[in-house]
Design a protein around this nucleic acid. Structure first.
Lengths: 119, 119
DNA sequence: TGCATACCTGCACAGCTGCGCAGGTATGCA
DNA sequence: TGCATACCTGCGCAGCTGTGCAGGTATGCA
């Protein structure tokens, strides 16, 4: 029961042992925040469509992603910037074309859930 | 190549066949939106902590969740209302206590990713 | 050199989201 | 009946987020 932080350890719980289990399950707050941020990247239909496309079709150029998803190119670019900053995708330059691909295995794993239930 | 919607089928793609694959991978827009919404529910640290607690410790009362996560009870209540509306959790009344649990198996699956990487 | 293409950036705005506060309802117990 | 507890609701605010527009840079080609 005393895994609960001191500031609220005095409050009487209804199911003591379950609270204890739950506190243990949550773990470090910064880890929770990290996971929330990861899910947040997948929570926009545009970004999600981009990632699903990248996961299935491999390296794709920005303009191809725009054609595929119907999003205009500045928006695609911005979304990719965000994903790149988060370490989810990486772009490789080939002449004036930049092809992006997914480099984060955890995100790729999460995307599997979508495709495996899409059929 | 002609899986691309008519309105933008005329634009010349860089990698034709990959665009085709990608369009197929994305599937119906409403399915993408549904998945995005699902991820969106997990994208808030508070809600995510609540769900992780529920997944590990089973049915928990609102006030216990408040103690566990450090969120005050109106916020917990509001988060649970959202999750209940989305069909992710359900509450069972026992006297003046309401114990919540996760009823959506897909969300439970997604939460497994967090705990399995937390050790 | 001139032009089209592929990509990126900055800015401003509308819309949503989480959160705290105050207060309301329902249940159990003395 | 009176009171404490458990939960819910409405309201208003601050902060974030996605989006479109306008324009800038870099590459390839004639």
């Amino acid at each position: 029961m005393h895994l609960v932080p001191a500031e609220r350890a005095d409050r009487r719980a209804i199911d003591d042992h379950r609270v204890c289990d739950a506190v243990a399950a949550i773990g470090e707050p910064h880890q929770v925040r990290a996971w929330a941020e990861r899910f947040s990247l997948l929570s926009d239909p545009g970004r999600l469509a981009l990632l699903m496309a990248l996961r299935q079709a491999g390296p794709l150029a920005v303009s191809d992603l725009a054609i595929t998803t119907g999003i205009n190119d500045p928006a695609v670019s911005q979304a990719l910037r965000l994903l790149r900053a988060a370490g989810v995708v990486a772009g490789e330059k080939d002449g004036r074309v930049v092809r992006y691909r997914i480099i984060d295995p955890i995100t790729a794993d999460l995307l599997k859930h979508c495709v495996s239930r899409n059929d």
